[in-house]
């Protein structure tokens, strides 16, 4: 009898990416995200965070190395909600279902459930321009969840929001991730955000992006971004991040 060991939800092995003749953007990055884990990738500008997510989402091809995602295609959220302005909130969610081949009757029901999940059940008929930034990002989340993938990739999804809305959406994300049992790969340049959300934080260097260090966040949820535990770990990580950035000043 063969015993199949459950692999990680996302396995990134020896990933290198460069564009044309430019120097490597990512260099030999290896990561494993366990099923149900919330992993935050942290780095300054130029660490190739977005490039990494693009590779995991199969939008780009790696120069070397491999990516494996359990259960096929992951869903991806961007910094911009990137909702389609010619559709209503509900139609945006329905389009994701439609492109997956979900039938018309089911689409309607699923879209309603998903909007209820992100607490926007009354906003379904609204057009994108009628929604606030936070509401748009929640519709984008409902659309991402409509893909029915258990792996959610997030590329600085809250960076463009005001602090109050961001704080609320952090809590919302934690709640949804638990109820949907999602595996999340979350990219940010905000240290506290990484510690607030992640089970684990991976620090990437810049130019080229390499894995510098990993941190286990042993703080129970619900956490608050203002809490001393979050602050303490954030200070330690920020120190490492700064010394990483300082290296670049010395080189030039």
């Amino acid at each position: 009898m063969q015993v199949v060991e459950a692999g990680p939800a996302v396995a990134v092995r020896g990933l290198t990416k460069r564009f044309g003749a430019a120097p490597n953007v990512l260099e030999d990055v290896s990561l494993a995200v366990a099923e149900g884990e919330f992993l935050c990738i942290l780095g300054a500008s130029g660490c190739g965070k977005s490039t990494l997510l693009g590779l995991v989402a199969d939008l780009d091809q790696p120069t070397a190395g491999s990516v494996e995602v359990l259960g096929g295609k992951p869903s991806l959220m961007f910094q911009e909600p990137a909702l389609f302005p010619w559709l209503t909130a509900r139609e945006n969610v329905e389009l994701a279902l439609r492109l997956k081949g979900v039938g018309k009757q089911d689409r309607r029901e699923r879209a309603r459930d998903l909007l209820e999940l992100v607490r926007l059940k009354d906003a379904g008929t609204k057009r994108v321009h009628e929604l606030s930034g936070g509401m748009r990002q929640r519709v984008a989340m409902a659309r991402a969840l409509a893909q029915d993938s258990h792996v959610l990739l997030m590329d600085e999804p809250f960076a463009a929001l005001d602090a109050i809305t961001r704080d609320v959406l952090h809590e919302e994300l934690v709640r949804i991730r638990e109820s949907q049992k999602l595996t999340v790969l979350f990219v940010t340049h905000n240290v506290r955000e990484a510690v607030r959300l992640g089970d684990r934080v991976v620090l990437l260097s810049s130019r080229p992006g390499r894995v510098v260090k990993e941190y286990d966040v042993n703080i129970g949820q619900p956490r608050r971004i203002e809490s001393p535990e979050v602050a303490a770990l954030s200070v330690a990580i920020t120190d490492d991040l700064r010394s990483e950035i300082r290296r670049h000043g010395g080189q030039s």
């Binding site: 607490r119 926007l120 906003a123 009628e130 929604l131 606030s132 930034g133 936070g134 509401m135 109050i164 809305t165 609320v168 919302e172």
Partner: peptide, 9 residues
Amino acid sequence: EAGLDALES
């Protein structure tokens, strides 16, 4: 959230 939505819409 409902409060924020109402304020910002």
